[in-house]
Nucleic acid binder design. Structure first.
Lengths: 252, 252
DNA sequence: AAGTGGTCTAGACCACGTC
DNA sequence: ACGTGGTCTAGACCACTTT
């Protein structure tokens, strides 16, 4: 009992991928509906005359894609698309701007070495008066100011500030260049806010313009904070888009 | 040549998982640094006296976790943590509120059947005057208004509006209940904005308070729009948090 | 030619759920 | 007792990279 019309064993395309696409299509077209059981692994193995391990590889891909779920001792079932979750995925400003077909450019407003005051010392988890590096940067898209960032790193290495850092700046690069340890983790918090006076001037907008406010903290492997940053970006120019569910390619 | 001190073959814990954790730890502690090559699959297989397929399973987990990458014909290498990407992952309001230890509750301001005007018809991709269902809901956390949602769905089924829908409302549930087709995809756009008069009153804040504005569109399997919604949530009460890199559990 | 990861096989035993 | 998915083995051949 076998069916070669679906799976071509002589094809260059891996068998597991062919089977994955076959089942994916069955789900997409509604032939298999949420809650329905898939054929058992043995059944698929026999039907297409392929080994069970190969079937399992295909099912693993479906599980990873969130389209099916398995239950030990029971079977494999079609999942309901989870549409109530939202995932906003964005890259650094430079890549995001380029991706939209615009030209990124950044202007360094200020860079200096300072001694940490109480507030900064707390943010970086260091002692007061520790030497720190301060950066103020404005990021432009096609000549228009889009974001305003303030960054701090501990300045332990006395490394000179390189031109290259100013060209495509990101907090983690900054942290990597001026720290003894390797940045491995980051935490970012996004809030809705509006500009105050200084920020309005820098971004060239009216005071009170809606903005996103993002606080970033970068950690090394020992969970020590090695950098802290605040980014403000214009709500009228920047949107976060999220696609959820199956085969979201079509609506992008 | 084998080493049983790392991998315990008699343990209940799967071998591939033990190996995964072992390598993960080597990377985490810096014993293996970004760019370093992992031992070859054959080498790991012989060293721990386990089959190559099991070694591959462990490596697959590391690849999925973004900690290593493979190159055909060359080897497997430790990846650099990508810290410039941001992923904001949030559930529906009810789950988010519960997760923060607060009590969610929603109040239905209005629900009625309307005929689509031009603007709504365009948003839902339907003809003008098509019958639609309108929902206006305020969502509370511990008695304090947090979000204000306006939702529209095409009203083809004449399904009665159930009490259960009002208890834990979400746009996709609404769409599922009042549409002939199954919601399988959604698009959400997040913007920074501020309240206007009506929204300020409903949320009990001053006009001009910073808010997140989220536009949701729900599609069925044929990419027809079956629901559209606008959600406004308070910027002073709601934050989006994102963790990136390796082992972000520790800093949560 | 030798070594690497990518795919695939045909078995095996296990824990779990159902009957 | 039986069927299910979860793990594991000891081979095999392939495409690719390096020597």
């Amino acid at each position: 009992m076998q069916d070669e019309t679906i799976v071509d064993k002589s094809s260059i395309i891996p068998i597991y991928y062919q089977l994955f696409k076959y089942v994916e299509n069955q789900i997409r077209t509604g032939e298999l509906k949420p809650g329905d059981a898939l054929p058992t692994e043995m059944e698929l193995s026999e039907r297409f005359d392929i080994s069970r391990m190969t079937v399992r590889r295909a099912i693993l891909e479906l599980v990873t894609a969130g389209m099916v779920y398995t239950q030990k001792g029971k079977g494999t079932f079609v999942a309901k698309p989870r549409l109530d979750n939202v995932v906003f995925d964005l890259n650094n400003f430079y890549d995001e701007i380029r991706q939209k077909g615009m030209k990124p450019y950044s202007e360094l407003l200020e860079t200096k070495i300072i001694k940490a005051d109480e507030k900064l010392a707390k943010r970086l988890g260091i002692a007061v008066d520790t030497r720190c590096l301060l950066f103020r940067v404005v990021i432009f898209a096609d000549g228009e100011p889009l974001a305003y960032e303030t960054r701090y790193t501990v300045y332990t290495k006395s490394t000179p500030i390189l031109e290259s850092e100013l060209k495509d700046p990101s907090l983690s690069n900054l942290a990597a260049a001026h720290s003894d340890t390797v940045p491995t983790r980051s935490k970012k918090v996004l809030m809705a806010s509006h500009t105050i006076n200084e920020e309005s001037k820098v971004l060239g907008v009216k005071p009170g313009t809606p903005v996103f406010l993002m606080i970033q903290t970068i950690y090394d492997g020992d969970n020590h904070i090695i950098a802290w940053g605040k980014a403000i970006f214009r709500g009228d120019r920047y949107k976060l888009v999220s696609y959820e569910g199956w085969n979201t390619e079509d609506i992008k």
